[in-house]
């Protein structure tokens, strides 16, 4: 069972985001971290490989500046190796070119399953996973809550608006998993030490046979052209509960004619 897991490395989500004044690209300076959303995919891959009784978990990431700290976190969880596509020309990539790059990196090795998160914390287009599948020419199931593998078949529960669907598919397959599907493990001290010597293969666009006419910043065919402040919503009255705050709420409900 060979599983590729996409791991996006993003600026610390706790720090306020900013767009560059002219290019309107998201500013990605300082250390990047593993997108928390991808921890679920890493955990699920490790569990599936365990259950299958063998195989490898390979991480795949694209980042313009050679960043590996997020990958080290995922390696410390137990993944065997990582592939990082890093190239200056990748700055300003849109979702489609990201998918082209990730798909090219994934298809260099045989895979049974590709796992991603349903959407990234900083980009949240939610299109990259299924774009990867279409490029690879395989099936995709997005918003996966549960997976069981038997031989070359996957039995899947997929979240829907009103409940869930049961889906059966042959491998190879791309799945995007929701947060909360599994409980991601914390890297142990041993894991963190071991991660330091695990291989991270670094690839450029040339290594992948791609050129910047259709990927990366110059290949992106959409751009942010303006930025404005949204109309701010004014906060209203804030009161401390002195035991009687419920009455204030009732009063407000009456004012709105809700009761």
């Amino acid at each position: 069972m060979n599983i590729a897991v996409c791991v996006k490395q993003i600026p610390d989500p706790a720090a306020p985001g900013r767009l560059a004044p002219e290019s309107f690209n998201l500013i990605r300076e300082g250390k990047l971290v593993m997108d928390d959303s991808d921890a679920y995919g890493v955990e699920m891959a490790l569990q599936l490989v365990d259950a299958a009784g063998g195989g490898d978990v390979t991480l795949v990431s694209m980042a313009p500046n050679g960043e590996t700290s997020g990958l080290r976190t995922a390696l410390a969880m137990g993944a065997a190796r990582a592939v990082l596509v890093s190239d200056e020309r990748l700055a300003g990539s849109d979702a489609l070119s990201t998918a082209k790059v990730l798909a090219a990196a994934i298809r260099r090795n045989p895979f049974d399953l590709v796992i991603t998160a349903t959407e990234s914390t900083d980009g949240y287009t939610g299109t990259v996973p299924v774009q990867i599948a279409e490029i690879l020419g395989v099936a995709a199931v997005s918003f996966v809550k549960k997976v069981t593998l038997t031989g070359t078949r996957a039995l899947i529960e997929r979240q829907t608006e009103s409940g869930y669907d049961e889906i059966v598919s042959e491998l190879p397959l791309v799945i995007s998993v929701t947060a909360g599907v599994v409980e991601p493990r914390y890297p142990s001290f041993k894991g963190i030490m071991a991660a330091k010597s695990k291989p991270i293969e670094s690839l450029s666009l040339d290594d992948l046979g791609l050129d910047d006419s259709n990927v990366g910043g110059s290949g992106a065919r959409e751009m942010v052209v303006a930025l404005r402040q949204a109309e701010a919503r004014q906060g209203g009255q804030v009161i401390e509960d002195d035991g009687e705050a419920y009455a204030k709420i009732v009063e407000y409900l009456k004012e709105l004619k809700v009761v």
Binding site: A95, A99, T125, G126, T127, V128, Q131, E134, F143, R221
Partner: peptide
């Protein structure tokens, strides 16, 4: 719509036609 079906459709179609998508 930026829904399950909407996203999946846009993602595959964007690759088939090789055109980008604006989402959200």
């Amino acid at each position: 719509a930026q829904s399950y079906t909407g996203r999946d459709t846009l993602a595959r179609l964007s690759v088939k036609l090789d055109v980008p998508v604006l989402t959200n």
